[in-house]
Write a protein that binds this DNA or RNA. Structure first.
Lengths: 193, 193
DNA sequence: CCAAAAGTGTTGAATGTACACCCATGG
DNA sequence: CCATGGGTGTACATTCAACACTTTTGG
């Protein structure tokens, strides 16, 4: 027998830039017995991403086994844009995952800069979610949940004037579930933690 | 080189029985180029499960690549109980996935019988979630969401008396997201669908 | 009748949306 | 002093938890 099953790790990097979600693909073959993360690290500079998680494993058309990872970046990522339908499916899966998690986790931290104005965060959410988001409510929801917090300083207004924007940052720099689904939560006094 | 990367598909079957979540493991090697589902079908009688979804791919201690699937059953499943720590981790991941999805999807359908009383469904939820669940509210929430619906007939009371229980069934027999997270939903008039 | 089990009504808390209004800045 | 962008206050809808109360049965 030849090489029984070639295994490739595919990094699907997403980044929001100028109101668009940019997708970049990188891949690396995995050596026998090698941990998946090693191959992933060969595919992309892994510490350039604030969050990485496994997406899905499937057999590609050419018969090769592929394990896809979602990687979220704040800065541009080198690599190829998706070309084949298969790659576009992976990107779609990555975007769907991101969209879902934006609603009930703090993943935003992996896409946003250190400090940001609410309007900037809003633009990011709009791009990733694909629908409009009210800055007013975005601020209130994320503040109430403790996902973001105020930080000193303000963003100076542009030439057209306007009130200076307050700056915020994400409270955590690791993925956390922030909305313990109201549905079917345990009974009793509010979870004491 | 020998067989470069042996790939095994592991089916983690979960079933709720007498207030307990029972986990059963089955595995099958995947042949080169073979779709994952084929190997899965060799591991378990796949049509015995109302719901199956991929969990995670990882390299096992022995260097073999493993892709785990979560399979939900209504009837007993043949196979081995988890023994190694690795297997117990997989089972834990499966249970975590089930727990999460019980809250915002209709996965319950894959564990419950055709028709059931609310108290029976409650027992199932209690076992899977690991915390108490109020039958009163369970009924109201699932009815309101359209996840379950009334069905003709009642369950006769036992020897100790009591009002006969109304019977229900799950409205769908495929996985559906039932709670489009209240958080950050699109603006405008209530989604017209 | 009384205990047991099931189901309904009602209240209150939490969380989000919508929208009016106030604030700070540039020209 | 006004347009512009930013922030706050408030009213309202939705959803769920809690719990009292009613209904239906067996003995």
């Amino acid at each position: 027998m030849t090489d029984s099953t070639s295994h490739v790790v595919v990094a699907v990097a997403l980044r929001v830039h100028e109101g668009r979600v940019e997708a970049t693909l990188n891949r690396a073959a995995r050596a026998p017995g090698e941990p998946l993360e090693y191959a992933l690290a060969r595919a992309v500079r892994i510490d350039g991403f604030a969050h990485v998680e496994q997406l899905e494993t499937r057999v590609l058309r050419d018969g090769a086994l592929a394990t896809a990872y979602l990687a979220l970046a704040r800065a541009p990522v080198e690599g190829a844009p998706p070309s084949t339908p298969e790659e576009q499916e992976l990107v779609a899966a990555a975007q769907a995952r991101l969209r879902a998690k934006l609603s009930y986790t703090n993943v935003g931290f992996a896409l946003a800069p250190e400090a940001f104005a609410i309007s900037e965060l809003r633009d990011l959410y709009v791009a990733a979610l694909g629908h409009d988001v009210s800055p007013t409510n975005l601020q209130r929801v994320l503040l109430r949940r403790g996902v973001i917090e105020r930080v000193a300083g303000t963003r100076a207004p542009g030439r057209t004037g306007g009130r200076p924007a307050a700056l915020f940052r994400f409270a955590a720099d690791r993925l956390e579930v922030t909305d313990e689904f109201a549905a079917l939560r345990p009974p009793g006094p509010r979870a004491s933690g």
